[in-house]
Design a binder for these strands. Structure first.
Lengths: 130, 130
DNA sequence: GTAGATGCAAACTTTTTGCAGACTG
DNA sequence: CAGTCTGCAAAAAGTTTGCATCTAC
């Protein structure tokens, strides 16, 4: 099962690329793509296949029933843990030290093997704390 | 806005109590409660209020579009970081050391103030790694 | 007695699917 | 050309809501 490089898939990818590291609800995406030349069902099918490929992460926020997606740049985001501000929503990478130490501590204390790409740490960012 | 201790709410709570620490999909719950004397809408309304109260956590698993709930003990979970297995879905508390160190490292490295209750770390649990 | 909860059915929203035709490699 | 993907519309799933009625306190 190969991935054809269709016009529609490209449209979607372009959109996702310009919103890297953002949390996009399904309806955000559908809305943005409406009228762009890709149908609703193609959006759903592509989102599903991108998710299966691991290029798109599904996020769920407490108290919010919507499904969110976050596009992950494979190169930049490989092995990065994201930290996301619950005030402003901005999401960035945790520094390498944070990742390293967290991974080791979890391994030692809980025998738990962290999946960095799936993990998002919530809290309040530097800017919003002022 | 108080919470009346209704028969229906009790039915639901009883069910959730007997499945503490399990991941229950909405349909698991609806199915289990069907015919027990509580209507579908009452289930939804109670799930929503329990979630708002923080006694029920919504879980989402990568690659699975269903909504899962996990009933939690409020006192036990206060200020706990959860670690969740992407294989089996089981969610437990990270050990105190993990929490402490993660909090400190994030503070020092990224000036980021973690919100423990909102954060779920994904990975593979001890059992599933075997 | 009254605020709050329930049941039911209808309305919504979100996601999936069947299929014939179009496109990619 | 063969294997995939797309659009459309219909169907299926999953949730929410209005309202009259009932319950807990």
């Amino acid at each position: 099962m190969k991935n054809y490089h269709t016009q529609q898939r490209t449209l979607l990818l372009d959109y996702l690329h310009t919103h890297i590291d953002e949390n996009l609800s399904t309806s955000d995406i559908l809305e943005a793509m409406s009228g762009s030349g890709i149908s609703k069902s193609a959006v759903y099918r592509n989102l599903a296949s991108l998710e299966a490929e691991g290029r798109l992460h599904r996020i769920s926020r407490p108290g919010d029933r919507r499904t969110y997606y976050q596009f992950v740049d494979e190169d930049e985001c490989r092995g990065q843990i994201h930290i996301s501000c619950i005030r402003c929503g901005k999401t960035v990478h945790a520094s390498p030290n944070v990742c390293e130490r967290l991974q080791k501590t979890l391994e030692n204390e809980d025998s738990f093997e962290i999946d960095r790409s799936e993990t998002v740490i919530y809290g309040i960012c530097k800017e919003c704390r002022k």
